[in-house]
Amino acid sequence: MKELRILPGPPPALETCVFTAHWPSRLDLKQEIMDAISAQLLDRGWISPADCPWVSLCLDEVLVNAMMHGNEGDPRLDIEVSVATDGKRWVVLVSDQGTGFTQAVVPDHDLPQSLMLEHGRGIRIMQEWLDELSYYRNGSCAWLARQRDDVTTS
């Protein structure tokens, strides 16, 4: 299993933040939030339409984790979402008001005994598709980054 970066400090400053919003921790708002973030990425050409299933999957995972685990499903607690770029990559930052988590709660699905588990696959999937998945503030702030579709590598 790839090592999961869970750091105690705050995330790096976002160079160019194009979108920030707060939502209460309500799963019925999840699709609205996902649509808003996806539109930010798609409209700027930072992702392609073919990326949409993966972006949806990553956003679904990170939003559910923030709302239901970080904020324990308390609708009085907000999540904050930012969309940014460092020039070559897009970054989505999702922060909750919880205390974070440790790698110990994430099952290692490389182990045969984990194969039939019904949970814990989301982080693994995100790690595979994203260029970077890091957690700051002990896990209460998820940092998702991937190379922009409109930036070609030389």
């Binding site: 299933p53 039939m116 588990l117 019904e118 696959r121």
Partner: peptide
């Protein structure tokens, strides 16, 4: 066309 990890868990 779209699946979440929660759906994958339910398939298990």
């Amino acid at each position: 066309g779209y699946l979440s990890s929660a759906m994958i868990g339910k398939l298990v």
